[in-house]
């Protein structure tokens, strides 16, 4: 009698154990696959993000500007928008890129990183607020979207970005 109930418990343990293994496999799978690509259009994401930001001191930059500042060719991507400060001594920027192919994400995020580095050296020792903004900048890669923002509202903008995907 006792034997049997014990046996039952062992079976439960075993079941739990396999559930654990299954869970960890799912966990690893989700890590490997990363975030699923988003179908949201770049315009939707752009309008969601810009709604959270004060754009009075910023303007939408041309593709040429994107090429110069980030070395990115807008036509290589499904969609890419860049906002920069109208005033040259401001560092506020917003870059949203939707890639055609996940393999492009690395190039884009590296470009954003190096843009940040360049700006940091440019303002190092001169612009205290600028350096602070740059240090607080957010770079987020979510599936097929790359998001880079330098702004006092960076956190809200990021939330809007994540919400819009």
């Amino acid at each position: 009698m006792i034997r049997q109930s014990e046996r039952k418990i062992v079976n439960i343990w075993e079941g739990l154990k396999y559930a654990c293994i299954l869970a960890v496999l799912v966990f690893i799978g989700s890590l490997l696959l990363g975030e699923a690509s988003s179908n949201a259009s770049i315009e939707e994401v752009e309008s969601a993000v810009t709604a959270t930001m004060d754009l009075s001191g910023m303007e939408k930059a041309s593709n040429r500007m994107m090429k110069r500042l980030y070395g990115l060719n807008a036509n290589d991507y499904e969609g890419a928008v860049l906002y920069i400060s109208t005033f040259n001594m401001d560092v506020e920027e917003l870059l949203i890129v939707k890639v055609k192919d996940i393999s492009q994400t690395e190039t884009v995020s590296a470009a954003a990183e190096s843009r940040k580095e360049t700006q940091l050296t440019n303002f190092d020792g001169y612009g205290v607020e600028q350096c602070q903004l740059l240090n607080d900048s957010i770079l987020n890669v979510r599936g097929n979207y790359i998001f880079f923002v330098v702004s006092p509202n960076a956190k809200e903008a990021e939330k809007a970005f994540l919400g819009s995907l």
């Binding site: 418990i9 062992v10 343990w13 075993e14 154990k17 966990f27």
Partner: peptide, 24 residues
């Protein structure tokens, strides 16, 4: 913050293994 789940898994899995080994 993410891998803490891995650690929790490790705890539960090895705990159960120990219990099973003894029972068997």
């Amino acid at each position: 913050p993410i891998y803490v789940f891995l650690m929790l898994f490790s705890i539960i899995f090895n705990y159960l293994t120990g219990m099973e080994i003894e029972a068997y």
